[in-house]
Design a protein around this nucleic acid. Structure first.
Lengths: 156, 156
DNA sequence: CTTGACCCTAAAGCAGCTTCAGGGTGTTTA
DNA sequence: TAAACACCCTGAAGCTGCTTTAGGGTCAAG
């Protein structure tokens, strides 16, 4: 099948599939000599479903690579896999904990200004200007789960 | 003071401070004519502390810009600020909910393989290969909070 | 024979930095 | 006085997982 069909079946965009090929997650497809279109078979589809499942579980490409490797070594121990999942769970849990602290702090902050005043008298701005003790600690330190690299202030 | 000193006082790296200047979060510093070094005063320090606090609370630069704007308009209504914080809280809460679903799914998955077998018999790989009903739904759809853009599989 | 749906590549964009390459400045110490 | 070392500068690339854009072929239907 062609890439559009594959995309539809598996629920990725065609761009994503091409991207996965470039990244080495998906084996390069054979090309139709006539027009250079990619041609896919059932094994590609299975692999993509596997990948999709892993991404749904917020695994990185690196983690997925490990699992894909393991998948083609039926006689190896699956301990690596268990450890990978365990670690991943820990990351997720750590992230949740961080965000819960963040939530608490934000609600506390929000409480500084219940009614609408002028910004001059806004308790929120005041709080942000002169951080209170217990609100000063970084809520979000670091993590590897969903989007850690992008947000969450780990200042140094 | 020079940038290194400022960095130490406020807890950012010098690179981050220069980056903030380039992004427009921080006003460009005056330069020492002798050597072109940046020179900072107390207002820069205050502004950076404000920014740091906001980043600790995982706000985007865009959100911080809004707050910084508001900060210099003492007579304006602070309703915008309240709304911004409220929305931010919602994002964080939504993100937590997503991650909790993810956690549940991962633990369920992990349960498929308690002892270490060969990968051939690994319940985890089996599950990833042939997704079960209730585990098929995307746990992480989207969000704007801490790192949404980077991770979390929103396939299409 | 043109319209529209599909395919291709390479490069840039997103967020918020960090790192690197390449090069000055300034103080201290041998 | 010269080397060593800490600090400053700029511009560009790298990180993650895609998405978007630009520019261009292929192919079936009307």
């Amino acid at each position: 099948m062609k890439i559009g069909e594959l995309a539809k079946q598996v629920g990725f965009t065609v761009e994503t599939i091409r991207y996965y090929e470039k990244e080495g997650l998906l084996h390069p497809a054979l090309r139709d000599p006539a027009n250079n279109y990619r041609r896919y078979d059932h094994s590609h589809l299975e692999r993509l479903i596997f990948i999709r499942r892993c991404r749904t579980l917020a695994m990185t490409h690196e983690e997925i690579q490990v699992l894909l490797q393991a998948r083609v070594q039926p006689n190896a121990s699956c301990e690596t896999i268990n450890e990978l999942i365990d670690e991943h769970i820990h990351h997720v849990q750590a992230r949740i904990a961080e965000l819960q602290i963040l939530e608490t702090q934000l609600i506390e902050l929000r409480g500084q200004c219940r009614a609408a005043h002028t910004t001059r008298d806004c308790g929120i701005l005041r709080e942000l200007d002169h951080p209170t003790e217990e609100l000063t600690e970084p809520a979000v330190v670091h993590s590897h789960v969903p989007g850690s690299q992008c947000r969450g202030g780990q200042h140094k």
